[in-house]
Design a protein around this nucleic acid. Sequence first.
DNA 1: TTGACGCATCAACTTTTGTTGTTGTATTAT
DNA 2: ATAATACAACAACAAAAGTTGATGCGTCAA
Lengths: 107, 107
Amino acid sequence: MTTNTGKSLPTVARIFHALSEETRLQILEHLKEGEQCVCDLTGVFKTGQSRLSFHLRVLKEAGLILARPEGRWVYYSLNADAVEELQEVVNSLKASSYRAAKRGCCP
Amino acid sequence: MTTNTGKSLPTVARIFHALSEETRLQILEHLKEGEQCVCDLTGVFKTGQSRLSFHLRVLKEAGLILARPEGRWVYYSLNADAVEELQEVVNSLKASSYRAAKRGCCP
DNA sequence: TTGACGCATCAACTTTTGTTGTTGTATTAT
DNA sequence: ATAATACAACAACAAAAGTTGATGCGTCAA
């Protein structure tokens, strides 16, 4: 069997989908500097709050970020564990070092 | 500056988008075993040829796979370089080890 | 307790993706 | 030449994702 992570296909697809949008990548970039609340991010991105809220939800549902509500605010941060797991998923994409002999449908 | 790969945001988003669909992940999984032509894959996935052709194009345009036309067939294979670059992109998602002091919009 | 703030969520809409069947173009075989 | 094969690409449609503005709810300050 090919090297595979424990994650299901839909789960992996969902993680990559969360990463497939520029705004969300920028959000992650910002979160690398530490916890931020939504108002921090609306300030940085100069965009509607509901739009950010939407993207944060996508990231959260993929498990890539964590939400920590505190009083009136919600602080978001990178989920370091998820990023590590993602690294493993990407590792598993590498071709097997021993290539199987070419199987042939084609003469 | 935060660790960043040389890749542009749209390029990175496009790569992740290519990885965000189950069929495409399965295609990559198969290509780990070596080069395959489209007819190999239609055999495996028991699906329409145009559908596979579509997904292969998405993967190819993201740079994740390579196409090698030979006569009547086109052989697809993993682009190992692209996977390595992807690993770097994912590495760069990790939080900076020294977290910046919490900046405050919020009292 | 009233009002302002921070955020999620919804509804209506636009845009982007994915599917299916069809057609077109090489290429090989007869 | 003709026919069959392997594939890409298109058109028409269906489904999913993203945007925007409005609404609602909890929390804090006055």
